[in-house]
């Protein structure tokens, strides 16, 4: 009978869920925009073959960053950035706007590293003959990247980028551990006060994630279909 009592009472906490949903979406969208920028910059640095000393140093730095993020759990990254670094550097996240900006920083750094690998793989997947053909026509490295390599790389990257969006949206639920009022945190709070319908409540929570992630997965399929050139 729990389900029936849940359905009877669901409208009571819908507004709280919607408010939390908004925070989840805002966190995901802002972080993923920053992460995409970080990913493109780091990915371009990593694929440059320049022997310049500054570029070499930057490449090492970028590799260290990617390895640290990929080699540690996101929960540990949250603990380090939310609790560890402020204590060490002597500031408080509260003074910088609280949990939301902290969450944006964590999610940006985390998704940015994976995005950088997606960008690198996308660029490296472009046939080297494409670069040679472009350079042999007299086009510079920059023009070749812009007109030949990146448009082709983007097409192979898009499904992976959308996949990373899906992963990062699900990762926002980890921010409940630092108390950000996003979806998972709100569901846990409601459950603490109204524990008779735990299964129904958490399934209701899961539906929010399902809706966003499944729509993105559909978008990915659509993009993949649209990707082939002149093969319709």
């Amino acid at each position: 009978m729990n389900i029936i009592s849940f359905l009877g009472n669901v409208q009571k906490f819908v507004p709280r869920f919607l408010a939390a949903f908004r925070i989840t979406i805002e966190l995901a969208v802002i972080s993923l925009i920053f992460a995409t920028i970080v990913g493109i910059i780091v990915g371009l640095i990593n694929t440059s073959k320049s022997k310049n000393i500054i570029m070499r140093f930057l490449r090492i730095l970028c590799n260290v960053y990617i390895n640290i993020i990929r080699g540690t759990p996101m929960l540990v990254q949250i603990l380090i950035i939310y609790y560890g670094i402020p204590q060490f550097l002597g500031f408080r996240w509260v003074d910088l706007g609280g949990m939301f900006p902290a969450s944006v920083v964590v999610l940006t750094l985390n998704a940015g590293a994976y995005m950088a690998e997606i960008v690198r793989a996308g660029i490296e997947a472009v046939d080297p003959g494409q670069i040679e053909a472009s350079r042999s026509l007299g086009l510079s490295y920059g023009k070749t990247m812009r007109r030949i390599v990146l448009p082709q790389a983007l097409r192979t990257m898009l499904p992976s980028i959308i996949n990373q969006f899906i992963i990062s949206i699900k990762d926002t639920s980890l921010m409940s551990t630092i108390g950000l009022a996003e979806l998972t945190n709100v569901a846990k709070t409601i459950n603490a006060n109204w524990s008779s319908a735990t299964l129904a409540l958490y399934c209701y929570l899961a539906c929010y994630y399902l809706i966003i992630c499944l729509s993105l997965a559909q978008l990915s399929k659509f993009v993949e279909r649209k990707m082939s050139y002149g093969r319709d």
Binding site: G129, E132, A133, S136, L137, G138, P151, Q152, R155, Y229
Partner: peptide, 19 residues
Amino acid sequence: NKIRENIGMVFQHFNLFPH
């Protein structure tokens, strides 16, 4: 790049730009 403008090149695998 200026020199290359003056030298056309044709490759074994064509290397046309597919996009």
